[in-house]
Design a protein around this nucleic acid. Structure first.
Lengths: 230, 230
DNA sequence: CTTATAAGCGTATCTTTTACGCAAAGCTAA
DNA sequence: TTAGCTTTGCGTAAAAGATACGCTTATAAG
């Protein structure tokens, strides 16, 4: 069977980080090509013989030198034939989370610059990347309520107030501190440590950690993580 | 910029129908090619200059001659480089629902045969299509609980018992008839008609219909469809 | 020592879910 | 005609869960 097809296939990654009450996205500025001097999502073309997952991970390494803590396919963008001015490109977008509190991104081989931008202060983006980003933001908002992915944005050990602020920030909602704590603790998947975190004022707070193993076990038994707040 | 890429891109559609307490999938058997005499999902390669949506709709028309009542992108399968023995193919899978109660599929131009198969009695499928189908089944199960897509599988006017059976069948759960009715009605998006449906025995039941406009309006106001049953 | 600030615990109230009971309306068969 | 079966449709009590707060505790700053 002969098949001529001139459509190109690319992968893009929306990498979210969270630091000091701000949700951030990782963007890059490329050295070469049409993207030169434009901020864009991490991404690039899939190589022959490469899987989609391999391609995203490669791009994440090449362009930003990071390892993400969560990665899932988001959506495949291919309903605008001219989303790329060069040729017809279909892009499989991936949704990624990293614990960016201690993370420093380094512009690697391909990228001139890699930088975190707060979601409420984004630069102009290349192509249809702002559309993709918007879809990712929505996914993050939704998923936060029914999957414990918030922990992937925090360090291994965190304060309850940090977790709470993360939810408030991303969901753009006020949440009652006490009820939030009660609900999260009721699941039995977040555990107290012996350590204390440091804050300027107020009563010192214990550090907590997410027990992923227990979460996985409970999930198999039918447990559903669910923290919807009106 | 020169770019050599020999990856092909295809679309596949998982079309679900519901009839007489059975969830069914639409499968086709092709006239030509490697797929000859094998049951497979509706699908094919994307043409140059064509969008993904256009491609699926074209395939749905060409291979089965149907118009679906619901269509959304499911997932893009490209993590197995050898999912197609001929060459590397990335497939964007779509999830579709049709009201199949009165629908007769006709094998159109490309397909030798198009047929509904009950989910609990499937033939061997080509390629990795059983994996794709499994993902679609999962999507259907999940989505049923937080989006009113069940109505897309039923005729415009339906009995409450039909809706209830649809939920029981797909979710593979027992649901209390009375509580189910109460909950659905409490949303105010399903309305009573003057007509009655016919059943062999028992008290005659009113026909109901889904008010999509009202649902859309409520959704904008923050309403969340949600019918989880333990 | 006082004040400010955040952490942590508890509880009354309101809402929702769950588990059923039971009458109504039709069909069938004696 | 009527007894029996079946499905529909409505209601309600009890259990569970969500919500709105009050109050104490532990630390730092002044």
């Amino acid at each position: 069977m002969e098949l001529r097809q001139n459509i190109k296939i690319a992968v893009d990654a929306i990498v979210f980080g969270y630091k000091e009450n701000s949700l951030n996205v990782l963007l890059i500025k490329q050295k070469f090509g049409v993207l030169k001097d434009q901020w864009a999502l991490v991404g690039g073309f899939v190589k022959d013989g490469e899987t989609l997952s391999t391609a995203v991970n490669r791009e994440l390494a090449e362009e930003a030198g990071i390892k993400v803590s969560y990665l899932e396919q988001l959506y495949t963008f291919g309903d605008d034939v001219n989303r790329d001015p060069r040729f017809q490109v279909i892009s499989v977008a991936y949704f990624a989370l990293v614990n960016s509190t201690k993370l420093v991104v380094k512009a690697d081989t391909d990228a001139e610059d890699a930088q975190w931008f707060p979601m409420h202060n984004l630069p102009q983006l290349a192509f249809d990347h702002s559309v993709i980003l918007e879809a990712a933001k929505q996914r993050l908002k939704n998923k936060l309520s029914y999957q414990p992915i918030g922990f992937d944005l925090l360090p291994k050990e965190f304060l309850f107030s940090e977790l709470e602020n993360l939810y408030c920030t991303i969901l753009e909602k006020e949440i009652d501190r006490r009820n939030f704590r009660k609900k999260i603790l009721s699941f039995g998947i977040v555990e107290e440590t012996e350590k204390f975190g440091s804050k300027k004022n107020g009563r010192p707070a214990k550090l907590f950690k997410f027990n992923k193993l227990k979460y996985n076990k409970l999930t198999k038994e039918g447990f559903l993580f669910d923290i919807y707040f009106a």
